[in-house]
Design a protein around this nucleic acid. Structure first.
Length: 628
DNA sequence: GTTAGGG
DNA sequence: CCCTAAC
């Protein structure tokens, strides 16, 4: 069949129409529809609507209706502050002291989010188990849980990194974890959190505190608790080499945390792990429904500005000097940025109609986790331009309360694949330029099942036939296929992270496994059962083109269905033939009209015959005998 | 890059 | 759907 010539096609008759739709033909096939794309498109659109229930999930954004949370983002001064604070353990980070306020309010933040990230750990128990060995305190720390009494339960995610904090962060004692006596896992701490206000006078290690009842504390399994402990212990050594005992003070009790943050998002432990190897940045701190509050004024602490060893200096401007200068300028010169929220990019979730709410939640959680779980970096955009020089001060960059801040934007972007901003932070009412529209799809996984409205029944066979000519548009919004590549890339990168030497054994081992496992899961394309419409189109195309020309079939009938490769079509045909041969009782899945199956058998037999006797010439007129 | 066929 | 040998 490799030498399919036009003459051959013409002889086959089935092919004819597809190749040349303009030629009138007596065959039934030709009347029913050619393979011209325009014809197929019609169907595709219909199919699309029918099958793409996911459109209803334009955003699975971290809800942003919550209150505000405070977060400190990076700034040289701030860094110093943090470091300093950790040392004495008494420094208080008070957002309330903000003197100058440049609130970049984003009123346009979508409030219609359908999903919220809860801090409730009980719900994620199952998942947690899977990652039970994941270093709890390493990455994202739970500072608080959603308060059920709070109408605006902002979820706060503290993205810290104990294992490895990038940039200046790695000099800062990282996350610490502790648990209360009764095995209630207590929030871990890290520098980031300190900056958020989880840094209230911290108790000593012995002074355990527990999460408020009803916040999920008791719902945390002992297993987790024990793991927490393990991690905590390990982390202990590893994190406070510089200052023994300090870590003890770094606990973050819910109470303390809540003081400045209405709530936090509790990211699954597995996620934490992901964050471990590389912090999102010191500022990462919170991803919460409410938003991130940026308040550098905390840099008031002069010492913090230049003291920390290793602190980078601004080129041409001694950092210390610069900081002092800024500091001396008075509190009024601080920039307060309020990032309303980091929105989780488009997440395409597919779940069967029969899925339980619980599984839906888990699926969503997985999706969110997958997105947030990779290496993330904070990208800063000013007036549409990305600010790449991390060493510049806000002042130098032009980010000051005196300037227009409406053009300032933050993005969460995947580590290496910077081409794909995962999350878009929009704070400002300002230029849209700074708002990067994320186009990410959650990598498919077995857990993610295509949600398909099994509603072909309303489509009469006749309609199907008439619409057959169309091709199936790619369900651009129904499934995560197209972007998989990038996701995979991200996962790959993440996988590499697990090799980070800083990890201690426990952290390295389990996580690696989990991680790689996850990667595998992610990489597999989601199963997307063929709809009757698709089968119809496939059958028709094969009738015309024959078997063995799957690439043509693909181009002809599924050119716009990006998720259907010619291999898929070939496989589908294979299964169709099989299905047609077995008894209806043995068939599974969405029933394929017998009429179609019959056509499958006929076409299959026909083309098999053709292959067997390629020399035999057929007269087009004769072909019409096959009333496809 | 396509096909074909087993997994 | 994946994988891969074969082309």
């Amino acid at each position: 069949m490799s030498s399919d010539t036009s003459s051959e096609k013409d002889q086959s008759g089935f092919v004819k129409e597809c190749q040349d739709a303009n030629k009138p033909s007596k065959s039934v096939i030709s009347d029913e529809g050619s393979c011209d794309k325009s014809g197929f498109s019609r169907l595709s659109s219909q199919t699309n609507n029918k099958n793409c229930g996911l459109k209803e999930f334009p955003h699975l954004a971290i809800d942003g209706d919550a209150g505000t949370a405070s977060i400190v983002t990076s700034s040289t001064c701030l860094e110093g502050f943090i470091a300093e604070k950790l040392v004495d353990g008494n420094s208080h980070f008070k957002v309330e002291n903000v003197t100058s306020t440049v609130n970049l309010d984003s009123s346009d933040y979508p409030k219609h989010s359908n999903f919220k990230l809860h801090g409730d750990t009980s719900k994620g128990k199952d998942e947690l188990h899977k990652f039970e060995k994941v270093p709890i305190g390493s990455g994202i720390d739970m500072c608080s849980f959603e308060d059920p009494l709070d109408d605006n339960p902002p979820a706060l995610i503290s993205l810290g990194g104990n294992a490895k904090l990038s940039g200046y962060n790695d000099r800062i004692p990282c996350s610490l974890l502790s648990k209360s006596r009764d095995n209630v896992p207590v929030v871990s701490r890290d520098d980031d959190e300190n900056s958020y206000g989880c840094t209230h006078p911290i108790n000593t290690k012995t002074k355990s505190f527990r999460l408020k009842t009803g916040i999920g504390d008791n719902r945390i399994s002992k297993r987790l608790a024990s793991n927490f402990q393990k991690v905590a212990e390990k982390t202990k050594d590893h994190t406070h080499s510089n200052n023994d005992g300090d870590w003890k003070r770094t606990y973050c009790s819910k109470r303390n945390c809540n003081k400045h943050q209405s709530s936090q998002m509790n990211i699954p432990f597995k996620k934490r792990k992901l964050f471990n190897y590389r912090s999102v940045s010191n500022s990462n701190g919170l991803i919460r429904s409410g938003g991130i509050y940026y308040s550098p004024e905390n840099c008031m602490n002069q010492d913090g500005c230049g003291s920390p060893p290793g602190m980078h200096k601004d080129p041409g401007m001694p950092s210390l000097e610069a900081c002092q200068h800024q500091t001396l300028r008075s509190r009024g010169s601080h920039v307060n940025l309020r990032i309303k929220s980091f929105r989780v990019p488009e997440l395409f979730i597919e779940v069967p109609e029969t899925a339980t709410i619980g599984s839906l939640k888990r699926t969503v959680m997985d999706a969110v986790t997958a997105v947030l779980g990779g290496e993330l970096h904070i990208g800063v955009f000013l007036q549409g331009k990305k600010v790449k020089d991390d060493s510049k001060t806000l002042l130098q960059t032009g980010i000051s309360h005196q300037n227009e801040l409406d053009a300032l934007g933050f993005t969460l972007e995947p580590n290496s694949s910077q081409s794909l901003p995962i999350v878009c932070a929009a704070h400002s009412p300002g230029p849209k330029a700074d708002i990067t529209q994320p186009v990410i799809r959650y990598p498919s996984s077995p857990a993610v099942i295509h949600q398909r409205i099994q509603g072909n029944s309303d489509m009469l066979p006749e309609h199907q036939v008439t619409s057959l000519g169309s091709h199936f548009e790619n369900d651009h919004d129904s499934a995560p296929s197209p972007v998989n590549a990038s996701v995979e890339k991200g996962m790959k990168d993440s996988k590499e992270l697990v090799t980070v030497p800083e990890m201690d054994e426990e952290l390295a081992m389990v996580p690696v496994h989990q991680k790689s496992k996850r990667s595998e899961i992610v990489q597999r394309r989601i199963r997307r059962p063929f709809s009757v419409d698709e089968v119809e189109a496939l059958v028709q195309a094969v009738e015309k083109l024959g078997t063995g020309r799957w690439r043509d079939v693909k181009v002809c009938a599924f050119d716009n269905a990006k998720h259907r490769t010619y291999v898929d079509l070939k496989d589908k045909w294979k299964t169709l033939v099989h299905t047609a041969r077995i008894s209806p009782q043995q068939r599974r899945g969405e029933p394929v009209p017998q009429e179609l199956l019959d056509r499958v058998l006929v076409a299959h037999a026909y083309w098999s015959h053709q292959q067997t006797k390629p020399q035999h010439k057929h007269h087009p007129e004769t072909e019409t005998v096959f009333s496809f």
